[in-house]
Computed example of a mutant assay.
Amino acid sequence: MAGRSALVTGAGSGIGRAVAVKLAAEGYAVTVNDLSAARAEAVADEIRAAGGTAAAVAGDVSAEADAAAIHAAAVGAHGTVSLLVNNAGIAHQAPFENLEVADFDRMFAVHVRGTFLMTRAVLPAMLAEGAGVVINIASQLGQIGGVELVHYSGAKAAIIGMTKALAREVSARGVRVNAVAPGPINTPLVMELSEDWRAAKRAGLPLGRFGEPEEVAETVAFLASPAASLFVGQTLGPNSGDVML
Rank of each mutant, 00 (worst) to 15 (best):
2 A>C: 03
5 S>H: 15
5 S>W: 13
10 G>E: 03
11 A>E: 05
12 G>N: 03
13 S>N: 10
14 G>S: 07
15 I>R: 03
16 G>T: 06
18 A>G: 07
25 A>S: 14
28 Y>K: 03
29 A>Y: 11
34 D>L: 07
40 A>I: 08
41 E>K: 15
42 A>V: 04
43 V>M: 05
45 D>K: 08
48 R>I: 04
49 A>H: 04
49 A>N: 12
52 G>H: 04
53 T>P: 00
54 A>C: 11
58 A>G: 08
61 V>C: 05
64 E>H: 03
65 A>V: 09
65 A>P: 08
66 D>Q: 01
69 A>F: 04
70 I>G: 00
72 A>F: 00
72 A>T: 06
74 A>M: 10
75 V>L: 14
82 S>V: 01
83 L>T: 09
103 D>F: 01
106 R>P: 00
109 A>N: 11
113 R>E: 05
114 G>R: 00
121 A>D: 08
122 V>F: 00
128 A>R: 11
129 E>L: 12
129 E>F: 03
129 E>H: 04
133 V>I: 13
136 N>F: 01
138 A>Q: 00
140 Q>I: 06
141 L>M: 12
144 I>A: 09
144 I>W: 05
148 E>H: 15
152 Y>F: 15
159 I>A: 09
160 I>T: 05
161 G>V: 06
162 M>K: 03
165 A>C: 08
167 A>I: 06
168 R>L: 14
169 E>K: 11
171 S>F: 02
172 A>Q: 14
172 A>F: 06
173 R>L: 14
180 V>A: 08
180 V>Y: 05
181 A>I: 10
183 G>T: 07
188 P>E: 14
192 E>C: 03
197 W>L: 15
197 W>A: 15
203 A>R: 02
206 P>F: 11
206 P>H: 14
207 L>A: 14
208 G>W: 07
210 F>V: 04
215 E>L: 11
217 A>T: 09
218 E>A: 15
219 T>A: 13
219 T>I: 15
222 F>C: 10
225 S>A: 08
226 P>N: 10
226 P>M: 12
229 S>K: 12
231 F>N: 07
232 V>D: 06
235 T>S: 15
236 L>C: 09
236 L>A: 10
237 G>R: 14
238 P>F: 04
241 G>Y: 04
244 M>Y: 05
244 M>K: 11
